[in-house]
Structures are given as C-alpha cells and as structure tokens.
Design a binder for these strands. Structure first.
Lengths: 343, 343
DNA sequence: AGAATAAACGCAATCGATTGCGTAATTTTT
DNA sequence: AAAAATTACGCAATCGATTGCGTTTATTCT
C-alpha cells in the first residue's frame, strides 16, 4: 500500500466524474453550481476527509490569511493584552495571527519583518522595539501595499496607520495629580527619549511641572533601557541620595513602580508618606501591592482589537496608500493609595 | 505605468538570461552553481528588492514554516510564558508561530485545530481547553503525520508527545508542606477533574492527606470551571462557613490564592494565622502580595521551549508515529509567608 | 417553434518556487 | 589523445486550488 498524500480536489473530481473547477466552486458555495451537486460534493469531501490546502489557494490568490505581529515581549502583561485583542478580532474574521518577538532589539525586529514579508502576511501589526531608530525594514511593506499598523509603540517619523494613547496628555494628568496632592519634587523614570511614547510622556510631565511653576530638574528624569525593576531600584537609590531627593516618582510602567515600593519597604521609606509612587499601564499587580499603586489604565486589549480591525478594514476596503488613520484610545488615571498625600 | 506585482525568480532569470532553476538554486547556495553566478544573482536579487515567496515554496514542498499553537488565554501569565518559550525556540530554527486562543472552550479549540490544519502547519502545540473531553479534532493531524505536542494541559486518553510537570508529585509535596506546618483541615480549590492536570493534583493532595492519617473531606475539594478570583472567593466563603472550616487552602493557581488573601484581609481573617494559603504557578504576584504567597514554580517558558524543540526534532528526524516522547519538567515548591505556621 | 436567456458546468492557464533528470562544456584520468 | 568524471547549468513537470472564458443543456420569451 502506497502511503497516500492528502486528498485533493482532483481526487474528488475524479471520483465524481466532474471537473476540479466544479469541486472548487461547490465547496465554496458558488452560485453557478447546482444545489444538488453541492450536496453531493460536500458529502464526499467529508467522507474522504478532504482538507482544503490554504497554501495552494493563497498562492493562486496572491495573499495569505495570516496577519503578522511583531511585539517586544509576549510575556509582559500589557503586550499580552494587545496580542490577545489582535487574536480575538483577527480570528473572528477568519484570520490567523503569526507572532514574533523582538525582545526590544532592533536586529530582531528587522529579522522578524523579513520573515513576515517572505511569508506574505496580509498585514503587519507592530509595537516597536526600544532600540529601533531606523524604519527602513518597513518600507517593503509599503511598497508592496501590505498595510502596517503600529500599536502603542509608534514611530513619529513614519506615516502609517497607528493605534495609541495620548501619551502627552495622560502623563500631564498623572503628573498634575501628584502636584495636586502637594508633591513638588517629582522624578520621572522613563524609557529612552527617541521612542515617541516616552518622549511624549516626558513632554506631558514637564508641561505639568512648568504650568505649576515647578522648575524641571534634569537630574530627575531617567531614560532607562530595559525599564526593569532592577533598573528602577538602581535609579531610585541614586535619586534618594541626592541633596534634594524627590518626594514622588512617576514610573513609566508598573513593574518599576512596584519594585520601588518593595525597595522602599525594605529601606524603611514610607510610601506615600516620604515618597509617592505612580505607575503606568494598570497591570493586575497595581491592586495587589500595598499600598495599592496609582496607575494609568492603558487599554492594551482594545488597542490590539482596533489595530486588527484597522488592518482588516484596510484590506477589505482597498484603501489607498495615503489614507492613513490614527486612532487614539482613551485612558484613565486610576488613583490609589500610593500617591495620596497623608497629612 | 503598470503597477507591477512582486519580483519573481522568473524576472531575475530573464534579466540575467539564465533559467529560473539556476536562480532558485543560487539563492539557496546550492553547490552545483558556480560561485561566480551566485554572487551575480544575489546581487541582482538585492538590487531588484526580490522577496522570496514562501507560499510558493511551501506549496511545492508540501509543508510550511509555521507551527501552530492553541492556547487557552494568551494574557494569562503562565500561558504567555509557554508561548514566549515556543516563539523563542521556533524562531531560532527559522519557524514562525501561529497562535490561536480557545478561551477554554471546546468549540473554539476544534475550530482552531481546523484552521491550523487548513493552513498546513508543520506541527501543533496544544494546551487543552478546560471544556475539552473529546479529542477527535486532533486525529487528522495524526493521520497526516503532523506532529502534535501537548504542553501542560495534556490528554491522558491520547497517545502523543507531551511536555508537562508531575502534577501528582508536586501537589503531594505542596500538601505535605501544609501538613508539616501543622495544618489539618486543608481545602483544595482545583479545576475540573476530567482535565488530567487537576485530577492529578487532587490525587497528590489526597495521597498526602491519607499518608498522614487525615481523612479526605469531599466538601473540601472544589472543582472550579474558570478558576477566577471571583469563583475562588465564592468558594472560600462557603468553606469558611462550614461547621468545621479549613485552616488552609491549596489553590491550583495564583490568581485564586491572591484573591483569597485579599478577601481575608477585608474580612479580618488572618493569613496564615487563621488560614494558610498556597498557590500554584509562581506568578510574579506571589512576591507582591502580602503575605508573600507560597506557590509551586511551574516552568512555563521552559515548557514552551521543550515543546517546540520536540516538535522540530520530530520533523527533522522523521520519527515514526509510534515514537512518542513525554518530557516531565522539574518543579519547585516556593515556600513563603502565606503558609508558615505562626506559634 | 425559433430565438434569446439563463443555468451548470469544463478547459486550461495561472500563482512562484522546487527538483529529478538530462546535457553541454570543462577538467581529470589513464 | 580518448575515455571518464566533474562542473554548471536548462527543461519541464509539479505542488493544489482558483478563475476567465467558452460550451452545452435546459428554460423562457415572443
């Protein structure tokens, strides 16, 4: 017995003595095939365990039913939320999601883009790596009319679809909250300034300070590479040993904020008594740490969903290349104990 | 100007007046092509922005360079760890990862399997949905010699590759720890028993009790559907209102354990004084909640990595269908404050 | 009834790369 | 120098589904 390969439409065609075209059309419910034949054909297809070969169909149609996602780290809560949203929207529209991680490295991001290009994804969703400063690896997508949607980590230098939050505004609101609580020496642990997100947050932060007559102390702004807890602890130690230490710190993610609170506990520094701590993203840990962490709700899941929707719309409606959309999603300041001034 | 489609090997062949075969071979560094031509061809390919079409290559070779992953929820830490591991190993071997979520629903899992079958993934990694009791949707993979590796949530009823932990043993160790600390009324919040993981953990739990002369109280075992924090709080409330309430609870994930601790704090129940709480997975939240949560380190990342490795090995080495491997990964009991008996 | 229209398919090219087999040119062997 | 062995390619089929166009048969119209 020869080990047979997969059953194809040709096999079905031969068995029913019709043409492969008819099989193909019948299985897709084409109107030019009689109800009668459709029933017979679908029945046989089931009986023979026919599995449609998407690869062949995709080749013929010059497209694929996968969309690519390049994220930084799948296992970080905020990014997992984005991916989850993308997957949900995509699969509801019959699309599969291919996920690659850049680990915040430029080199990996370029390589990922290459791989997704070769696999002919019908669209790309990207959250930029921290390192990335050059965007040429996305150009082939534009040239080949493959829509690219940037989510959260977007490039200000590139004209494309984008889904993000108003980082300037929300950083302003967050900082203002600290000021309103009476804090005057507010530090900011940010990401590297070339990444728009962090530049904007720094902007919002400085804007709030200036508006309230607080002069901006450059030594109070840290541009961190990994934004890890360890990096944050290192930073806060330096800050607290300054002649005039901060009485509040605005962290650009919750991991850093939580690490700082934990450090403070060990060091006997009272939060928020001696140091108010504000996070970002509103990870689940914000309501677990004590004191509960004030943070900014960052709608990752919705962001992923919207990005996927934008992508799929782009393809369905065959938008022109110049018709780029930017979606700004709402955020919310989640005020909790870690920033409430105690009298 | 006609809008051109992608550049193909035929275009390159025409321009250099050689055959497409030569282009194909040259670009893959085939030994039968002269160094000279290889250089010329790769140079032109770069110049013309040639993008290899993986779809065409895959069709010809009857395979794809993606592996499929069916997980329950991407945005749950443990599962995100698995996926992250899969992605890292896969992409290091030039493979892409297609991810679909079942949301713990049988129906979605079947649908996902179908989609991945059609897209001709070269392998499948699955973490079973809680609901799943029937495994026929995986049969087509076996029939078509597509390797399936189950990770963490494995089916005892099916013979296949598996990567998991020793749930019986680790549940035994965890329960024994509680007993050793002096707790005698130990409840267990588990998942549904038909899922092997949870059945095994219940087994380990009861084994430890019996071995120490503690009789097993069926009312102390909850088989929860979603294993959410809310479900856990509901359960602990019932348990604590029993005539003889538990003095310890072993939760099958950390989310439940943390919710219970938070509930206890509000209700004025001292942990571990009045109720010891043990979690599972060793999520980051274990070291954030106070008291810190005793838990079981569950090597998700490594699990994903091993699963991917197994899959790729299977394909590379062309194993027979009967040559199934089961990998059991080590775990570790992470003892923290939430279970330390106070005298 | 003859013509026009619609319904229900079949033919064959096509998508882009891969590959077994064949061949001409060049080099090595005896 | 003739034979054998390499080297360096080309030819054409192939993977499996899709689709524009053409054809046959059945139905409707006048």
């Amino acid at each position: 017995m020869k080990s047979k390969t997969h059953v194809t439409i040709y096999d079905l065609a031969k068995e029913l003595d019709v043409s492969p075209s008819t099989i193909s059309r019948a299985l897709r419910g084409h109107s030019s095939i009689s109800e009668d034949k459709i029933k017979i054909i679908t029945k046989l297809a089931k009986k023979r365990n026919y599995i449609p070969n998407d690869i062949a169909a995709n080749l013929r149609q010059n497209k694929s039913n996968n969309i690519g996602v390049i994220t930084t780290w799948i296992n970080r809560n905020f990014h997992a939320q984005i991916i989850s949203g993308v997957e949900e929207e995509a699969s509801s529209q019959g699309m599969n999601v291919i996920i690659l991680q850049s680990h915040d490295r430029y080199k990996d991001e370029v390589q990922n883009a290459q791989a997704l290009l070769n696999s002919r994804v019908s669209g790309l969703i990207v959250s930029l790596a921290m390192e990335t400063r050059n965007y040429d690896h996305f150009l082939p997508f534009f040239k080949n009319r493959i829509p690219v949607v940037f989510a959260d980590r977007v490039p200000s230098e590139l004209n494309s679809h984008k889904v993000l939050i108003d980082n300037v505004k929300v950083a302003y609101v967050a900082t203002k909250h600290l000021i309103d609580q009476g804090y005057r020496h507010i530090a900011h642990l940010s990401g590297q300034r070339h990444r728009e997100n962090y530049r904007d947050r720094i902007l919002g932060y400085t804007k709030a300070l200036k508006e309230h007559g607080i002069n901006v102390n450059k030594n109070f702004i840290y541009e961190l590479k990994t934004k890890s807890g360890d990096e944050a602890i290192q930073a806060i130690q330096e800050l607290l040993s300054l002649p005039i230490p901060p009485d509040a710190v605005f962290c650009t993610n919750d991991t850093m904020a939580v690490s700082i609170i934990q450090y403070c506990k060990k060091a006997g520094i009272h939060v928020p008594g001696q140091l108010a701590v504000m996070g970002f993203n509103n990870d689940p840990i914000t309501t677990i740490i004590e004191p509960n962490l004030t943070s900014v709700f960052n709608p990752g899941f919705e962001m992923g969903k919207q990005a996927a929707k934008l992508l799929l719309d782009h393809n369905r409606l065959k938008w022109t290349d110049k018709n780029f959309t930017t979606i700004k999603l709402g955020t919310e300041l989640m005020i909790r104990e870690s920033t409430i001034k105690i009298n």
